[in-house]
Structure formats: structure tokens, C-alpha cells
Design a protein around this nucleic acid. Sequence first.
DNA 1: TACCCCAGCGCG
DNA 2: AAAGCGCGCTGGGGTA
Length: 545
Amino acid sequence: MFIVLSRARARSFEDDGTPAGDEAVHDLPAYVARRERERPRWVWNDTRRWYPGLLAAGVRVERCVDLRLSHAIIRASMATAASRLARAEAGEWDAPPALVEERPPRQDTLFDLEASALPTEPDVVAEWLLQREAVAAAPEPARLGLLLAAESAGALIAVEMKHGGLPFDKALHETLLERVLGPRPRGFERPAELERLKGELVRILGFEFNPDSAVELLKALRKAGLRVESTSKWEIGAIDHPVIVPLLQYKKLSRLLTANGWAWADAWVDGGRFRPEYVPGGVVTGRWAASGGGALQLPKQVRGAVVADPGWKLVVADAAQLEPRVLAALSGDRGMVAAGSGDMYEGIVASGAVATRDQAKVAMLGAMYGATTGDSARLMPSLAKAFPRAIRLVEDAARAGERGEIVSTRLGRSSPAPGPEWDAVQSEASASAAAESRARGRARSWGRFTRNFVVQGTAAEWALCWMAGLRGRLWNLADGDFVERPHLVFFLHDEVMVHAPAHLADAVAQEVAAAAEDAGRLIFGALPVRFPVTTAIVDSYADAK
DNA sequence: TACCCCAGCGCG
DNA sequence: AAAGCGCGCTGGGGTA
């Protein structure tokens, strides 16, 4: 059963698309709660507009179709390029995701919710039917269907994660800041420790300057006789000079202050919860993005403030060596699959391709990112010899990108075509030697993008399936309101965090592992690729690794 | 004043 | 010696 929601109407359809009802809806949460017992798939234009209000009213749904996210995938996918949807002119459904208000009101009333859905709501039924038509005509409808289901589940999870929030102890965060920076400054002056470090820098160099300004800092270092091209820590870190140690410390603390200091906590932490905006599909490859608060960059330094509620635990799990395993599965490279029976990098060493675990890691990264220099590039030939199919897959993706072609993930998300500027650079290649090398450079660069796209994008699909499966399993572990049950509170590409009542933590850990196995089978079928997860049951995020 | 761009650094 | 992919955020510094 599908129930298409639009404004104050709900239109029902059987699984085969036969209309099965059309009713006016006055009390949306009550209506959804009642119909949810039939386990329908709710079809709506945008999960961000419909679901927060429902959750706030205590209504959780099992499944949905997010037409906005699905549209973006179908529009771009090679698998649906011939569909009416993909051939149509860009319209309302192609609007950029920035449609959502910067800081939406925390609790929309029902009236506000529906009013805010109004101006961006074209004919949802027509759009849904167009999407079904496109998927049905795809070469592998099941794969694309899985992708759309996973993407839509991700949309639900993103809203739920914001609703539940990441448990964050502001007082502990403050203690942590004070320990390294000193007391919170009253005005805009530097915290004591930064002031002290700045004094030290000035004393060592022998003249006044502002270390917060990259321009001044570069000048200062040169004036002191250091030959540097930039002030980045990887360059100056290699220099032997008394100013370097305090300078790196200054940079580290300065970063902490500006990115995750008191002001950050005031803006983003409320009621013991960090609630950033997660943006499913926000990255071209299908990864999530986040906006506000830098949720996906939460530094290890402040993770100690992420603490479970009393009587609760954090179950933190990450997929070990996800991208190399995805490459093995994608390519069906038997040797690489076998290398992944345990620690993948050890397995690669055991295969004889490289000498050390470190080399295995660097070589695999190089293969997936397209390294051209250094150790990583030098290791490529032996890697290619040991794992020909895997390396051929990424090389083919790179060559396709260099020709300006489009590549796709396992489930059918396709890369964007290079833009008009790229085309212009390529067509000018014959004009001069400089133009040719420029065109070549740009082509190679795009090739590195498409090379990585197939792996990163397929890994994102795996992670979505993992999380979607886990979400369902968590719901079934307990009864009660959403936040009373174990629920996902954080997601970081290949890592998830569940906030769970302590007595359920072990059960959660088992579900996490089971969901990972499911995800591998769903996407890659019977192929014996393992996707092990390492799980920690902790009170503090800092103890997870 | 209101932007835009860049360097730098955090995360995977 | 941090190169090769994908992001977001901040402050400085420039331009309109």
C-alpha cells in the first residue's frame, strides 16, 4: 500500500498502483498514526517538511518515498536516462536542496507544516507515477528500487537523528575547554592559554605579529629566516625551529576555540542535545552532508563531551575498511575478496602484493583516489598484478571520466557530467602546448573524481542499507515512544552511533552486526565479501576507539 | 555594509 | 614529503 500525502489529502494506492482511496485529512498525526498500522509506504514531496511535525506529535513511520531525493537520483541515473522523467525539462522537482529554511522552527504546528509545504508542492501523484515508470523501465529495477528505498529511509533517519539529538554534556565540554584554553573570556579577547602562546611566539621571533592572520604569519616566518610556502601545519611541522612547537599548539587550540568552542556550544547544543541538520544525498556521491554545527567534523578532541544519559549507553560501530571491501565486492576480484576474510590490509600483505600493512593501506588509498606520485603510486603496479580485476575497475572508471563520460555506482547512482567549462577547456586543447597540458590536467582530475565516485558512492549505498536495516531492528527491540527505544543518534559515513537503554546495549550490538551482513547481501548478493563491524559499548564517545 | 574567495583544518 | 577523493566551517582579506 502507498499513501500519497499532499496538502490536506491522502490518496491511497495498491502496490500495483491501482487507486484505493482518496480522503481529506484534517488531523495529520492522527491520520498517519491510524494508517501506519497497515505498514504503508508514505509518499511525500520532502521528508524534511512532513516528518519533523509527525515525530514531534509522537508519530513514527516505518517507510516512505521521498520524491525529492528520488527525483534527483532518477534524473541523473544512466539507468533511467531514457525515461520521460529524465528527458523532461528541469522543473520544480529539480530545485536545489537549499529550499529548506536555514533554521526551521523547532516545532511546526500542523497548520504551519502544511502551509510551508504548499508553495513547493507540485502534483505529487503525477511525479510519483513518473518515478515508478522510470524505475520499472530501468535495466535493473530492483537495484534502483533498493537505492530509492535506502535513500528514503535515510531521509527518515536524518530527521529522527535531529529529533533525538546527540547526547552532549555541555558542562563537560566547558570543563574540557577550560582545561586547555583557560576560563571563557568575557569579551572578544583571546583565552588565557592562547594569549600566553602568542606571547611566546612573539618573544621567540622577536617582533609583534598576529598569528590569526595567515598573511602576517607567513611574513613573520619568512622574516625570521624560515623558507616556507605556506603556513599549513604539514609544511611547517617539518621545520626545525623553536617557534614551531608553540605555533602548532597555537593553531590547534585556535581551531578548537573557533570551530568547537563556547560559541559553538551555545549555538548548537540545547537541552543536552547536539542537533545539527543532516542532509541526505547532500554529496554528489550519495554521502550525507550536514549543515550547521559541522556535525560530520566533530573533532576527536571534543568527543569526550558526547555522553550517554544515565542508565543509557552509546553503541558505537564502524565498518572496518569499508571502501576497500566495497571495491573487492564491486569488482568481484577473488583475490581481494579473499584478502578481506580478516583484516583486509593484513590479507593484502599475505597475498604478497606488498610488504607491510602500512603499504597495503597506502596502496589501496592510492588505487581508490588515483595517486600519481609518491609511495602510493609506486605500489600500484604490484597491486594491479595481485588484484587485476579490482584495479581494472577503478582504472576503467578513471578513463571514462577522462573522456568526459558518466559512471555509476552498484545500485545506479550516476556521476554528474562535467560542466561546460570543462568541455571548453578540452576543446581548446589543440590551441597551444599550455592549453593541451591544461586540458590533460583537467581530464585527469575529472578521472580521479569518477574513479573515486564508484567506490565512495557504492560505499555510501552500503552504509545507507546498513543504517536502514538497523533502524528497523532497533525499533523492534523495545516498546514505547521513539526516544524511549534505542535509536540512531549519529552517522559518519562508515560509522553509526545508537543511544540505547543500558540493558539493551548488547542486543543493539548484535543488531548492528546483523544489519551489516544484511547490507552486504542486499547489494552484492551471494558474493562472499565480509563487512565486519567493530562495536564499542561506552558511556563516552571518547572511549569508542 | 554586504558579500565572495581563500587558506587552513576538522571529519570520513 | 601528505600525495590522490568527498565534504563544512571559520577568520582574514579583498571587492563592490
